[in-house]
Computed example of a mutant assay.
Amino acid sequence: MTSAGSRDGFTDIRPDGWIDRLAPAAARPYLKLARLDRPIGTWLLLFPCWWSQALATQGWPDPWMMILFAVGAVTMRGAGCTVNDILDRDIDGMVERTRSRPIPSGQVTVRQALAFLVLQLLIGLAVLVQFNLFTILLGAASLVLVFTYPTMKRITWWPQAFLGLTFNWGALVGWAAVTGGLDLPAVLLYAAGIVWTLGYDTIYAHQDKEDDARIGVKSTALRLGDASKIWIYGFYTLTYGGLLAAGLVAGLGIWFQMVLLAAVLQLAWQVGTWRPDDQMDCLVKFKSNRWFGWLVLGAIVAGRVL
């Protein structure tokens, strides 16, 4: 790619990261397959769980439950990436950013990746069974999304919407883990998470738009094109509206609303300063959603304890 801000051999895999420096050589390809060197995806999967748990809790959220969600997010994000890389191995080999991933580069075979996937799913199951029966069933249902999402870029211009359905399932699971059921605040939080994902993953998809167009892969970055900024402003406005509605329905007051405004400013900064043709800037803005996640969590906790 030769777009502004890009470079030859652009990749988000750091050859000098902690895995290459600290992990045993035999484990390195598997740790990279699970994206343990790039934790932003884990954060984006984890925050809806924590938001919902905090929203359903009177007072401070249970630390042990937060730890369980964290372990589950690491494991299931890794499982999702493994499924994605198995199904996309031929496509990944044709995309500049992804051709050095373990499967297309030949570091891990498909059979080895499948065995690693089973291990991750077993760990995820061990975490899930710590919760009530309704939460176990709800969490197990998410596997339908985990296994179907990677195929969506082949059939729809809106695979980011399906990622939103998948990555924000924790907004339902977190509430269920605390209450044993589902209520309107959890549904509103889930909807807010979906449009949040539409925003940040459209930014992310702009990294690959030239390669995607060349090989015939669909994305919102290609569908929305030069209008992406306007659409993302819209997605993020709906995110704010959904979060505000979830908090108000759950009984949160002024402290929640005040801290949530800081989170909204973070979203506005993302889009206002985003350079869609700069691959590195796309990655930076995408990763900055970690701070948005913390601000929303802070808003919900503030609304519960202050």
Rank of each mutant, 00 (worst) to 15 (best):
C282M: 11
I254R: 09
V264I: 14
A263G: 07
Q270M: 02
L252Y: 09
A246K: 02
W269M: 05
C282Q: 07
D278H: 13
A245L: 13
I254S: 13
W269I: 14
G241H: 02
V249S: 07
S288Y: 08
S288T: 01
G253Y: 11
L243D: 01
V249E: 04
L260S: 00
G241Q: 03
W274D: 10
L244T: 10
C282K: 04
M280L: 12
A262R: 03
W274C: 03
G251M: 08
P276L: 12
L265T: 11
R275P: 01
D277M: 09
G247D: 02
V259E: 02
V284N: 13
L243H: 09
L248A: 11
G241V: 03
V249N: 05
L283P: 05
A246Y: 00
S288C: 05
I254F: 12
L283R: 06
T237P: 01
V271L: 06
V249G: 00
F256S: 04
D281K: 10
G247Q: 02
Y240R: 08
T239G: 01
V284K: 15
G242T: 05
V264C: 09
V284C: 09
K287W: 09
A268Y: 13
D278L: 08
T273H: 15
D278T: 03
M280A: 14
D278S: 06
A263H: 02
C282H: 04
W269L: 11
V259M: 03
A250F: 11
L265Q: 06
K287N: 14
Q279H: 14
Y240V: 15
A262S: 05
S288F: 09
M280F: 14
L252G: 00
T273Q: 12
V264N: 05
G247M: 00
A263R: 01
M280C: 01
A245T: 06
M280Y: 10
P276M: 12
P276E: 15
T273R: 09
V284I: 13
L248Y: 11
Q279P: 02
G272V: 14
G253M: 07
G247E: 01
V271P: 01
A246Q: 10
A246F: 00
V284H: 14
T237C: 04
Q266M: 03
L283H: 09
L238M: 11
W269R: 06
A263P: 04
V284G: 06
G242D: 10
M258S: 09
A245G: 06
Q279S: 14
Q270V: 09
W269H: 13
L261V: 15
D281R: 06
G247I: 03
Y240S: 05
A250M: 10
M280I: 01
A268V: 15
